[in-house]
Computed example of a mutant assay.
Amino acid sequence: PVRICHSHSTSWRGRASRLAGMQLFVFRRLITANATALCACGKEAGRFLFGKEKDVHLLPNGIDLDLFAGGCADTEAEKRKRGISDGRLVIGHIGRFTEEKNHEFLLRLAADMKERGIGLQLILAGDGPLRTDMENLAAKLGLDDDVRFIGIEDHVHDLLKTLDVFVMPSLYEGLPVTLVEAQASGVPCVISDGITEEADAGLGLVKRLSLKEPPGQWASAVLRAAEAAKPDGARIKETLRRLGYDAGENAGAVMKLYNMNWKKEQ
């Protein structure tokens, strides 16, 4: 009796084409005719898939704010577990190895920073169809000792505590959960302008850049982000809760849409 369609992206197949446009048109008609409720992780995601904002329920991707706001018990131990070297700038990214995540840009950025004499380690968490290609590219760029492909990460909250900067050069995104998690952990983020502005919680932790900017601009932004002052944990948690990123509260909203009773555990 309840059929909900939830939009999580702002682009269809990453590029405009007549075929993609026709498919999107058909999907919109099918969704409108069959869904009893429309949801989106952000306003832009709602406009993209449904072609409107009206009657679209905004349900941000909720996370466990307590888990990510808490400090890591032993950061150095977490670094050793993942093979992260001491004394280097640690840049991280979490995401599937697919075209839209733009891992090639990350590797070329790391190569540029290495050429400039910046000691860094790039940590890439995740898996996907392009992982082998990216591993080969890292070797070709001479980054064997500077990039760690750590695969699927089961404890993202601990990994984030080991990072100096989170970098996300995506070609397009809806409202990425990992970016919310990074901000919840107090990690400064340098992201592409292909990611919706809604993803910035206004904590001063996010810097957006165009992918057309040269690597040097991105490198400078990463270095500045690593040195910038960070907001305190209480402010981060309260801001994200107010913006709707509390998983417990979001669960209640989803259950309400499905006409089910919900009582958040205390």
Rank of each mutant, 00 (worst) to 15 (best):
P1R: 14
P1E: 15
I4G: 05
R15T: 08
R15G: 02
A16V: 13
S17R: 03
A20Q: 12
L24S: 12
V26G: 08
L30A: 14
A33D: 10
A33C: 09
N34E: 08
C39H: 03
A40V: 08
C41L: 08
G42F: 04
K43A: 15
K43Q: 13
E44G: 11
A45I: 11
G51K: 00
K52R: 15
N61C: 13
L67N: 02
F68K: 00
G71K: 10
G71M: 05
D74A: 07
D74L: 03
E78H: 01
G83E: 00
I84E: 00
I84Y: 00
S85V: 04
D86M: 04
R88Y: 02
R88N: 01
V90P: 00
V90W: 00
I91K: 01
G92E: 05
G92A: 00
F97T: 04
F97A: 04
T98D: 12
E100C: 09
E100S: 11
H103A: 10
H103Y: 10
E104H: 12
F105S: 08
R108H: 13
A110I: 06
E115N: 14
R116N: 11
G117C: 08
G117Q: 04
I118G: 02
I123F: 00
A125L: 01
G128M: 09
L130P: 10
D133H: 15
A138N: 11
A139G: 11
K140A: 15
K140N: 12
G142L: 05
G142I: 07
D145Q: 07
F149L: 01
I150E: 00
G151R: 06
I152H: 12
V156Y: 06
H157R: 02
L159D: 02
L159R: 01
V165Q: 03
V165A: 01
M168G: 02
M168W: 07
P169G: 08
G174Q: 12
P176F: 08
T178L: 01
L179Q: 10
G186M: 05
P188N: 05
C189N: 03
V190A: 04
D193P: 08
I195T: 10
T196G: 08
G202Q: 04
K207N: 06
L209G: 04
P214A: 07
P214K: 01
P215D: 14
P215Y: 15
Q217K: 14
V222L: 13
L223T: 11
A229Y: 10
K230I: 07
D232G: 09
D232P: 10
D232F: 12
G233V: 13
T239K: 11
R241W: 10
R242P: 07
L243R: 14
G248V: 07
G248F: 06
G248P: 03
N250Y: 02
V254E: 10
Y258D: 06
N259F: 15
M260I: 14
K263A: 13
